[in-house]
């Protein structure tokens, strides 16, 4: 019997090793798998390369992972936002590396990685500092920049409903990067609000087919990052 359900967040993140590339879903707090991130902090893996659109807020979730010095490098599009304190501080001190990628290029690099496409050309960033050092090719009269697909050892994502095959549906704009990250990682670890019997999800509405998912842990009452940030919480 196929059963991707596991029993604890500790078990979910147990295999994540030092130096691993970890894609973490979420756009701001929407879709951020905060329980999995906190379990990863407890687990202790370090020198991680983390792919996320942002760098977290306050002192919880992704920001706490960075603050606990587990992240060597961030690959993201927007590393500063309201309540983002930890990353800017370490970056200014030269203690964390940044690869800045335009948001659509980031999404497409992850999609391409998951789809077995090693590289692609895009008009995004042509003539800007973010294209410096990259191959530019003129196709049908327009310049395009070569960008490489992005894969990862692990993806940590959050969804609304999952079954034991790993089929997933999401909640509203919490979907964001999760479906493409699930495709691009060797091991995709999912925290779901609800775990449902196989057959409950309408096949017409499944967003991430279970083939892209390896482990599912139920977190029925997830923390909200903004609530923790407003309360001044920090992790651990």
């Amino acid at each position: 019997m196929i059963n991707k359900q596991i029993n604890s967040v500790e078990e979910a993140v147990a295999e994540i090793h030092d130096g691993a590339t970890v894609m973490i879903g979420g756009f701001g707090e929407a879709g951020s798998p905060i329980e999995l991130i906190h379990a990863l902090i407890d687990q202790g893996a370090k020198d991680l390369i983390v792919v996320n659109n942002n760098t977290g807020s306050g002192h919880v979730g992704l920001a706490a992972l960075i603050e606990n010095r587990r992240v060597a490098k961030m690959i993201c599009s927007f590393p500063k936002s309201a309540n983002s304190l930890v990353f800017p501080d370490l970056y200014t001190k030269g203690e964390i590396e940044l690869e800045l990628v335009p948001q659509g290029t980031l999404a497409e690099r992850i999609r391409a990685g998951g789809a077995g496409i090693p590289a692609f050309y895009t008009a995004t960033s042509v003539g800007t500092p973010l294209a410096e050092g990259k191959e530019v090719r003129n196709i049908n009269g327009r310049d395009f920049v070569l960008e490489y697909g992005l894969t990862a050892d692990f993806a940590l994502i959050k969804c609304l409903k999952a079954d034991r095959y790993g089929n997933l549906i999401y909640n509203k704009t919490a979907r964001n990067f999760a479906p493409v990250m699930a495709m691009a990682a060797n091991t995709t670890i999912v925290q779901t609000k609800e775990f449902v019997p196989v057959g409950d999800l309408d096949p017409e509405t499944v967003v991430t087919p279970g083939i892209f998912v390896d482990q599912v842990i139920t977190v029925s009452d997830p923390l909200h990052e903004s609530v923790l940030v407003n309360a001044g919480e920090s992790y651990p």
Binding site: P79, T92, L100, V101, A123, P129, L130
Partner: peptide, 21 residues
Amino acid sequence: WSTGNPDAIPAVGGAMDLVAG
């Protein structure tokens, strides 16, 4: 997206994709 100030934290978001597409 940036003043080019070396001390600033660079952040681009989706602006380059929007103007290109």
